[in-house]
Structures are given as C-alpha cells and as structure tokens.
C-alpha cells in the first residue's frame, strides 16, 4: 500500500510564544508577516506525529511505501528529516505560502497524490500550528472523494483494505473503521515521535527531495486561485490587571480565598 504524509513547515510555535510573551512579536511592513528571523522553522508538530503514525503502521507489519510531500518555499530540511526517519519518497512542490489558502494547498496536494500513483492512506496533522485552521485534510478528502477521519490517537490496519482509528473526542475515545482509501488526521495524543539514528541523519544530508511543479502535476492556474487571502495580521494586546498577593504562602492563600469570596467567585 502507499501512504502519503503531508507535512508543512511552520515557525517554531514555542519561539513565537516566547516572543509574544516578551512583547517582541512584530509584524513586518507588509502588515501581514511575523518578521523575527531568529524564529526557527520546523515541521508542524502534528505532521511529525502523522509521519510517526505511518512509521508505526510499517513497524506493525504493513508492507507500505511512505511518501512525504510538502508545499512551500524551501522545506528541504523537514523533508530530509522525514527521509532520515524512513520515508521512501520525499517531494517538494514549490509555491509561495503567502499566495495559498486551504483550497489551493489541498488542490496541490490532491493533484500531487493523483499524479504520483494515488494513495491508500493520506495522513495529515490535525492542524498547522501557524494558521491553526485544520481545513486542508478535509479539503483533500473532498477532492479525492475519500472519507476523512479526524484527531487520531492510534491508527492500525484491519486486513488490507480497512483502517481502524482511535479518535480523541469530547466524549472520550471513539473507535472507528473506514475502508481505504481514506484521509486521517493525527493528534499529539499519539505520543512523542521518534528520532532518526545518527547514521541516517548523516546520510539524509545528501537526500534530495523531488521537485514537482504545479504545472508538472497538471494544475491550471485557476485551480490555484485562493478563496480567501490574508490582508492583515496583528498582535493583540492582553491587558493585565493582576493583583499579586504576597506575605508568604499561608498569608497569600488566605488573602486569595478572602478576595475570591468577596468577588463571589467561590
């Protein structure tokens, strides 16, 4: 079977958080993009977990080829990481992320999948940590006519044509089955992704992602037209009015309970 994992390069969300807390998250002159060049770029965390889910399927005995694809300006570092972990194929579709919306991204990913032999299972992250939208997997599913199962904490095969997914839902874990081909989105509950071995990491330096242009995968310009575009990004201010209570643990605790009682919060 062929598993395709879609991975996106994002700004390190922890670094973005740190800059935000320090009040140093700045938007550039274009009014849209975060400017700090000090923020590293890495693979979206949930996408690492989607790749981990693919590798676990193979560990469990599935004879699967794993293809990893990324759209972006230059995601070769994250693709090499995927190769080091055991991806059989790594592919880059060049496009300026600023010109893409979820529809355009899904159009590209669906066309890439179609033009490279299709997929039995498409694994995505539940959402990208930059835009937090979580729409691309559903849009891929609609384009390829595949069912979409969201927020997996475990993925396994039942026979050769069915996948079983444990989903994290607001009512607890739910077990579902779906016939392949299908799209599954993976969440952090699947657990910490593995690291590549030192030897594979070294070899991966020489791995070159295949480059597939949108033209080569058969997309017309009209199919890349976004339905939404970013006009502005801003950093909201948080107005603190925190009263700090001190005088040592016991006094502070007492003062807190008194205030909460006074405010009617207890």
């Amino acid at each position: 079977m062929r598993i395709v994992v879609c991975v996106k390069e994002v700004l390190d969300p922890d670094a973005v958080n740190s800059f935000a807390v320090a009040g140093r998250l700045a938007i550039g002159d274009d009014g849209k993009s975060i400017t700090q060049s000090a923020i590293p770029r890495l693979m979206n965390g949930f996408d690492e977990q989607a790749l981990e889910a693919a590798l676990r399927l193979r560990d469990a005995g599935a004879s699967a080829s794993i293809a990893v694809v990324s759209i972006g300006s230059d995601p070769s570092n994250i693709l090499r990481h995927a190769w080091a972990l055991g991806a059989d194929q790594i592919a880059h579709v060049p496009a300026d992320p600023a010109t893409l919306d979820g529809h355009a991204s899904a159009a590209i990913l669906a066309a890439w999948i179609r033009s490279t032999g299709g997929a039995d299972l498409v694994l995505c992250g539940r959402q990208a940590s930059d835009d937090d939208q979580g729409v691309v997997p559903a849009l891929i599913g609609e384009r390829l006519g595949m069912p979409v199962v969201t927020i997996a904490r475990a993925v396994s095969l039942v026979g050769s044509d069915t996948v079983r997914v444990t989903r994290v839902t607001p009512d607890g874990d739910e077990g579902v089955e779906v016939s392949l081909p299908a799209v599954v989105t993976v969440s952090n509950e699947i657990g910490t992704p593995r690291y590549p071995t030192a030897a594979r990491k070294l070899q991966a330096r020489r791995a070159r992602p295949e480059v597939a242009t949108t033209v080569a995968i058969g997309l017309a310009a009209a199919e890349l037209a976004p339905r939404i575009h970013l006009v502005r990004q801003l950093v909201p201010s948080v107005h603190g009015r925190c009263e700090l209570l001190d005088g040592g643990p016991a006094a502070a605790a007492k003062a807190l309970v008194e205030r909460l009682a006074r405010d009617g919060a207890l």
Partner: peptide, 19 residues
Amino acid sequence: RVTAAAYGGDTHAVYEVVG
C-alpha cells in the same frame, strides 16, 4: 472580512473573502 485567531491566539489574522 473575517478575523481569526492564529498561532494559538498570539496573532489575529484578518482574511478577505474572494468572490
């Protein structure tokens, strides 16, 4: 024009709907 939280809420993104 739609404003949505991004980066967990570290930023707000304003999108314009085309069409």
